[in-house]
Computed example of a mutant assay.
Amino acid sequence: MSRSRALQYYIAARLLLAPLMLWTITTVVFLLLRATPGDPVDVILGPRAPESAKTVLREQLGLQLPLWQQYFDYMGDLFRLDLGTSLTSRGQTVWTIIQQYFPATVELSLCSMVIALILGIGVGVLSASRPGTALDAGGRLFGIITYAVPLFWLGLLLQLVFSVQLKWFPLGTRFPASLSPPEGLRLGGYIVSTGLYTVDSLLSGNLGAFFTSLHHLALPSLTLGILLSGIFERIVRVNLRQTLRADYVEAARARGIPERRIMFAHALKNALIPVITILGLTLAAMLGGAILTEVTFSWAGLGSRLYEAINLRDYPTVQGIVVFFAAIVVLSSIAIDILNAYVDPRIRY
Rank of each mutant, 00 (worst) to 15 (best):
D42T: 09
E259N: 12
T105K: 08
I191C: 01
L272S: 11
S4Y: 05
L83Y: 10
A128L: 02
A6F: 05
A104T: 11
L154N: 08
I276S: 01
I235M: 14
T282H: 00
Y248T: 07
I273E: 07
W168H: 07
F210W: 11
I276T: 12
D200L: 03
N270P: 03
I336L: 10
Y315I: 11
T85Q: 12
L227D: 05
P170T: 10
L67P: 00
L83E: 09
T27D: 07
I257A: 02
H216W: 00
A209Y: 03
S229K: 11
G155N: 04
L219V: 08
R140T: 08
Y349D: 14
S193A: 14
L171Y: 14
L17P: 04
G139H: 07
V343A: 14
L287M: 06
I121V: 13
K167R: 15
M75S: 10
T277L: 02
E59R: 14
A290W: 05
V330Y: 14
P131F: 00
G225R: 03
V192C: 00
A134G: 02
L331F: 14
F142R: 05
G230F: 09
Y71D: 09
A148P: 05
A254R: 01
L117E: 14
P19R: 07
I278M: 15
I98S: 06
V249H: 04
D337W: 11
G230V: 10
A309E: 06
I310H: 04
L222R: 02
P220V: 07
M21D: 01
A254N: 07
T85E: 11
R255S: 01
L202M: 08
L222K: 02
G188E: 11
V343Q: 11
R260Q: 11
L83H: 04
Y9K: 15
